[in-house]
């Protein structure tokens, strides 16, 4: 199949970007989306042009690196997959495909389609770990975890930190990501002791990074390649509400994040 690609080109963080058009020809429907871009890049290199920069690593939907806004949707038209899992059979011969980076203030563009997602990291740094009891190690079997709870924690832990939820949200809210992280640890017995500080600190960091507020449209969960459920946002709000209630120093007028 032959395709016209409209790709966002931006040489570095400080320059202004623009769309450029490219043609790719005779692409097999079985090639993956990223292989199609590899083919384009080989052509570009061959003609002495700068190849299109995009993030990718595992190409198996696990690492969360690939991140493209394809025809107005994060990770393209299919549900529940990452860009690297997208195949050209999802498109038609002669299609125009627009490819952009994630667009959100807390994710500045580094080059072309590559964005800086270190804001996610700083949110985790604010509390996304368990710090107590790392000295002596009692037997894991002494704190049995009911399978249902273990499974729910596992679902939350499936978040790959790709940022599609932010890109999908008109307010660039990171609630789905943060709620997945909070939920995972809040559900496990070993994570409960610190759950109050965790949720407060992570939410504070999220605000500080400039992510927008959640207005509960559900676009994040619909576009999430791991189909992280909105229930985790509800759990975060519950955790946050109780944490704030029991905090002595609740600033007057501080908002509860809406579910």
């Amino acid at each position: 199949m032959d395709l016209t690609l409209k790709i966002w080109r931006q040489p570095n963080a400080n320059s202004k970007g623009e769309f450029k058009s490219y043609q790719v020809k005779e692409i097999s429907p079985d090639t993956s989306f990223l292989e199609m871009l590899d083919i384009l890049n080989e052509d570009l290199l061959h003609n002495g042009e700068d190849p299109v920069h995009f993030d990718h690593d595992c190409r198996e939907g696990i690492c969360g690196t690939c991140s493209m806004f394809i025809n107005g949707r994060p990770h393209g038209p299919q549900r529940g997959i990452t860009t690297c899992q997208l195949h050209m059979r999802s498109f038609k011969d002669g299609d125009n495909i627009t490819i952009e980076p994630w667009r959100a203030k807390p994710f500045p563009v580094i080059k072309d389609l590559v964005v800086d997602r270190s804001s996610f990291e700083r949110i985790i740094q604010a509390g996304g770990y368990i710090s107590i009891g790392t000295g002596g190690v009692p037997d894991a079997n002494e704190i049995p975890i009911p399978r249902r709870i273990a499974n729910e924690a596992m679902d939350a832990a499936a978040c790959i930190g790709c940022g599609a939820c932010v890109a999908a949200c008109k307010n660039a809210s990171a609630m789905l990501f943060v709620s997945a992280k909070v939920s995972h640890l809040a559900l496990l017995p070993q994570g409960q002791a610190e759950s109050k500080e965790r949720v407060e600190n992570m939410v504070a960091q999220m605000d500080k990074e400039g992510f927008g507020s959640c207005t509960n449209t559900g676009a994040c969960s619909a576009e999430c390649p791991k189909e992280i459920s909105l229930e985790h946002i509800a759990r975060l709000n519950r955790e946050y509400f109780f944490a704030k209630q029991s905090s002595e120093n609740v600033p007057v007028g501080d908002q509860v994040h809406e579910g």
Binding site: T134, A140, N141, R147, A150, A153, M154, L188, Q190
Partner: peptide
């Protein structure tokens, strides 16, 4: 492996809650 459990690794569990 138990240390990792304590750092939050969600090991799969049996019905009785053990690893």
């Amino acid at each position: 492996m138990l240390q990792l459990e304590h750092w939050g690794c969600p090991w799969s569990r049996q019905d009785d809650g053990t690893i």
